[in-house]
Simulated assay, not measured.
Amino acid sequence: MSLRPTQSGSGFLSFNSMPPRLHITADTEEFDIDTIQQWRDEGFDVTYLPRRGGGRPYADKLTSLADDLELGEAYAIVAYGQAATDCLIVHQKPMPHLCALICFYPSDIPNPTASYPTQMQLQVHLAAGQGFAPKFPAFVYDGVSPGFAENDVDEFDPAASGLSWSRALSAVRRGFKMDVDLEKVVGVGLPVGGLYESLEYPQINPASRMKHTVPEPYVNYVSSQTGGVDRPTIMRFYQNFFAPLPPSLSTRLVSRIASVDRVVSEFILTFRHTHVIPFLLPGVPPTNKPVQIPMVSILAVRGKKLEHEHVYWDQASVLEQIGGLDPNAVPEDWKRKGCKRLPVIGVDQAKGVYDIEEIADDMNKLVKGW
């Protein structure tokens, strides 16, 4: 893992002296401990600053946060609600050492066309119903209310919270000039790896993998709804229902993209169906049929530990290849309306991922009138 910090410390980010300082501020006297811990897991020195009525005393506290920092050191602020509004007002002026300001659902944006210091990473996260449209960087989340990023309130929304977290973490790391190579964290053969690593290195003990997870991880093989929602069920799943794998099984990594807290792996899984495979085809007896299937694994990492994994594949394609689904078995009422074949693609799915030219002549063959 590579890192180019402006200030440093120990732990996940491998600093040399002091970890980067991050202040969370909000309207309540106490704040969501899970969010605070998330930032600490990523290697930040986190303190909480309650707004306590705001006004001049609060503004003075905001402007004094860098008083004990030395040349070259920096800090970031993550603010919520009315505190976020106050921060947007106070920090229009350049603040020494402030490298990032993240504002979640400010209650108001007094100056939506304001300009902010270019050396500061600014990011605002809004619920669509707030109706704000600032000219500075902002993300809007549909179907949620202010509070969507706080685990301990009724308005918490897991999807919006996860997406906003990734964006906020990315902005803060840019502010501190951090470069974290997550692909090395989940590299081939490392226990923290996901399904791709599990298939490549089945000899790795499940108990060893569990040492590299957050306290409440989950694994969801979406297409078969298998996996586990906590450490005990994940352990049971990998110990009793993952192996033995068919000896013919092999993987070929097609692409891998590492973002700020996600690693996305696209790979081809190839095997002959000589064994029951509970994670892929639960309850289906061996057919001895060959299978090639593209798969996508999305691995979420928090502080060098596995937080969760989502795995996707086309189950209809797998069933077609083993003889469990006939694309020509079209319901009669569909036939009467002109449908001649189910839109299911077998092994050609994998061929098209390897080399698009192999299937170029068959592209759109299922599209009526092409």
Rank of each mutant, 00 (worst) to 15 (best):
L98I: 05
V347R: 14
D60A: 14
C339Q: 15
V330W: 00
Y201G: 03
P117M: 05
L98M: 06
L169N: 03
S198L: 15
Q292C: 06
I24T: 11
A66H: 12
H212Q: 15
T213W: 09
N240H: 14
T226Y: 07
V172E: 02
R272I: 15
N220S: 10
A316N: 11
L49H: 08
Q92L: 03
V260E: 12
D181W: 04
L169H: 01
R56L: 13
I24S: 02
A133R: 10
M363I: 14
D157Q: 08
E29K: 11
D67I: 08
P117N: 03
D362V: 12
L245R: 04
V318Q: 02
E309G: 02
V180W: 06
T6R: 14
E332A: 15
V185G: 03
S250Y: 07
A128N: 07
I277H: 06
D86V: 06
I298Y: 00
D261I: 00
H97L: 04
P5W: 02
N240A: 10
K340F: 11
P5L: 02
P343V: 03
F12Q: 07
L245Q: 06
R52Y: 15
V186F: 05
V264A: 12
Y116A: 06
A66P: 08
D355Y: 13
H275R: 10
H310N: 14
F139D: 15
M95Q: 15
F237D: 08
L280N: 10
L13S: 08
P331N: 07
E320P: 11
A74H: 10
I24V: 13
N364D: 13
L126R: 01
E307S: 11
V219A: 05
A114H: 04
V186Y: 01
A59K: 07
V263N: 06
V192F: 05
Y48V: 02
L98D: 03
F139N: 14
G303S: 08
I268A: 04
G175D: 00
K184S: 13
A127E: 05
I268G: 10
E42S: 09
Q82Y: 13
P282H: 01
